[in-house]
Computed example of a mutant assay.
Amino acid sequence: MTHYTKAALRRAALPRRQALSRAEVTQRSQQLCDQLFRHFLVGQWRWLHVFLPLALKNEPDTWPLIHRVWAEALPLRLAAPVVQPDVISLRHYELTPTTPLRANRWGIPEPVADPTTEVAPAQLEAVLVPLLACDQQGQRVGYGGGFYDRFLAQCQPKAVFIGLNILDEAPVAAIADVLPTDVALHACLTPSRVWNFG
């Protein structure tokens, strides 16, 4: 079995993702949205956590998915993350059509923090997780900051963690340098299929 390091997977994935055209990012993001609604009982969730995309890095565009939830008037409510001043943790706020947004230091849109709309991780039933690559055990590679591992560890045991990979690639066999604090995904969506883990 081939084992890949997170750094090697990150180095390989970033240029491949950066090479995608805007049209490809748009098309693949819509396919990811379709996969989520086709394979998961989205309408039965009460709270879904979504990341807002960093367009400069060709992250999956989650806005089609967000607008679909709003358009279908599902009972589902959405939450989005805000990076905290300590630059190691996240807090989460409800995302509605009227939520004001502002870009953080990395250019990622975030809800303007409002204590009345804060959502606790324990309330979330599903979390969409950004990633660059993952393995067949559901371990993922992000940018290396550890934000999501710390956040996912706070979620309820029944919460479903779903990675979104805009690169239409199968999970690698195994990531070599998984840490005890890393939290595995339950599934990963690519534009063409769904990978389920465990």
Rank of each mutant, 00 (worst) to 15 (best):
T2P: 11
T5Q: 09
K6L: 10
K6D: 08
A7L: 14
A12S: 12
A12N: 11
A13P: 02
A13N: 04
A13C: 05
A13F: 03
A13Y: 04
L14I: 12
R16Y: 07
S21C: 09
S21L: 07
E24Y: 11
E24G: 10
R28S: 02
R28P: 02
Q31K: 15
L32R: 04
L32G: 10
D34M: 09
D34Y: 04
Q35K: 09
Q35M: 14
L41G: 11
V42M: 12
G43L: 08
W45Y: 15
R46K: 09
L52M: 13
P53Y: 07
L54Y: 08
A55I: 06
K57V: 10
P64V: 08
L65M: 15
L65Q: 03
L65N: 02
V69H: 03
E72K: 14
A73D: 12
A73T: 11
P75G: 05
A79P: 02
V82N: 04
Q84M: 15
P85M: 11
D86G: 07
V87R: 15
V87I: 13
I88Y: 06
S89V: 03
E94P: 06
L95Q: 09
T96C: 10
T99A: 06
L101H: 12
L101T: 11
R102C: 11
N104T: 06
G107V: 04
E110F: 07
V112K: 00
A113L: 04
E118I: 10
V119W: 02
A122D: 11
A122E: 13
A122G: 02
Q123K: 05
Q123L: 09
L124R: 01
E125G: 13
V129M: 08
L131C: 01
L131F: 00
L132F: 10
A133P: 13
C134T: 14
G138W: 05
V141M: 11
G142W: 06
G144S: 10
G145D: 05
D149H: 08
R150F: 02
F151E: 00
Q154I: 04
Q156K: 13
P157D: 08
A159S: 15
V160Q: 14
F161E: 05
G163N: 07
N165I: 00
I166C: 03
D168M: 04
E169K: 00
A170L: 12
I175M: 03
A176E: 15
T181M: 06
V183L: 03
V183G: 01
L185K: 05
H186Y: 01
H186D: 15
A187M: 08
C188G: 04
C188Y: 00
C188W: 00
R193Y: 00
R193M: 05
W195R: 06
G198P: 03
